[in-house]
Amino acid sequence: MEDCPSLIQSNAHIYSDLPASVRSERGLPRESGLVLCSPECPSGARTAPHSWHIKTHPLEIPQKWEASPFLSGQDASVYSLIPVLGPSLTVLDLSSCVALTNRTLQAIRASLTHLSVLRLAWCKELRDWGLLGLGDPSDEPTQEPQEHLRAKLRRNLKSRSFFPQLHQELEHQALGPKDPSPQPQGSSLLMLRALRELDLTACSKLTDASLAKVLQFPELRQLSLRLLPALTDKGLVAVARGCPSLERLVLSHCSLLSNEGWSQAASSWPRLQHLNLASCGQLTEQTLDTVGQACKQLQMLDVAMCPRISMAAVRCFQAQLPQVTCVQSRFVGGADLTITL
């Protein structure tokens, strides 16, 4: 790292242990380990063009950034690189770093506040509390069962029955439900105010609980929420209101999204140009009509493998929006793949 100072001041992509065939396609070194790609790195010629290859094991972790006992292997390597990269880093690609943890994500938010591009595709261990900047729920002391707490409180108040109304209020306050929808804290993803592109593809443990509160970036241009099985209409509407400047949106394989969600969300995205709704099984031609009326700048639409959208609806959509130059409609209308193939 010492003979490549420009890496700290330029864009970087960190790739995990990808298969050799994928590494070859991307022009990356075939050896295992992490890869940082920098267009300004003079040492890049020794590996792949514009890249810096870092072995996973020899990395020295700075004392003030010692790897947590919860971090291991690949995640510890990424964690140790964060302070080295510096606050001037603008592009960080951690795609396929499947071992990336929420604590490393929190470190990224705290140190790399000037990021404009953050790709976390297939980081399957990321959870809602990590995006919200909250502590790990597993670190909290075990709570006593509600019924046990209720019985204990009643015993304590039994001898003071001459204040029944006050006792009822105290019991309600003590046993009232916790906030089911926690708010983002100071170290949440919202700290990355310069974001223009965010990829959360296949971060399958994320739900509306975090997405609805954290995805509030008025200047965000590209967003991928592909393969998020828990994303619902509520989350979609919240994302639409929080990210009104989107130009590219990928929501394929989000099976809980429906026409109702799109009827509320579409009007927030007048600048949308590329939209991917492939394999969203609940969507019908009603969503096509909604998108056609609200997204007048749309150029590309993917509704492949949407069983409730007919080919006739796709043709009608194209006729109404001639500026849409590409519509992917493979196997729409519930086509039998065994016959079509």
Rank of each mutant, 00 (worst) to 15 (best):
D139H: 08
R150G: 00
P141K: 07
S161Y: 07
Q173N: 07
L134C: 05
D128V: 01
R127C: 11
L170W: 12
K178A: 13
K158A: 15
H172P: 00
L166I: 06
S159Q: 13
G135F: 03
E171D: 01
E125N: 12
W129F: 11
Q143E: 14
L132V: 03
K178Q: 13
P180N: 08
A151N: 10
A174W: 10
R155Q: 14
G135S: 12
R127F: 00
H167F: 03
E125W: 05
Q165S: 10
K158E: 15
P141D: 08
L149P: 00
D136I: 04
G130L: 01
L126R: 02
L131H: 02
A121W: 02
D139T: 14
A151Y: 06
F163A: 12
S159M: 09
R155F: 06
E169R: 14
F162M: 07
P145K: 10
K152E: 14
P182W: 07
L166E: 10
L153F: 12
S161P: 00
P164I: 04
L126Y: 02
E144S: 10
E144M: 11
P177C: 08
H167R: 14
P180F: 08
R127A: 13
L153V: 05
L131S: 01
R127S: 10
W129T: 01
R154A: 13
G176Q: 13
N156A: 11
P145G: 01
R150E: 15
S138Y: 05
Q183E: 15
E125G: 05
P164N: 06
D179L: 09
R127Y: 00
P141R: 06
G133L: 02
E147K: 09
A121H: 06
L131I: 03
E125P: 00
T142M: 09
H167D: 14
L153M: 12
S181Y: 12
P180C: 08
A151H: 11
H167G: 13
E169W: 11
Q146C: 01
L153Q: 09
H172F: 09
L170R: 06
P177H: 08
D179N: 15
L149S: 08
P145Q: 07
D179S: 09
R150S: 12
P137M: 04
D139S: 14
K158T: 09
L126Q: 02
H148Q: 14
E140D: 07
P182Q: 06
E171R: 08
P137F: 05
G133T: 04
R155T: 07
G135K: 08
L132G: 02
K178V: 07
L126V: 04
L132I: 02
P184T: 05
W129C: 00
L126W: 03
Q168M: 07
P164S: 09
L157H: 09
P137V: 04
Q143I: 05
L126P: 00
L175P: 02
D179E: 14
W129N: 00
Q173K: 13
L175M: 04
C123E: 05
F162C: 08
S161C: 09
A151Q: 15
K124N: 07
H167E: 14
G130Y: 01
P141G: 03
W122R: 10
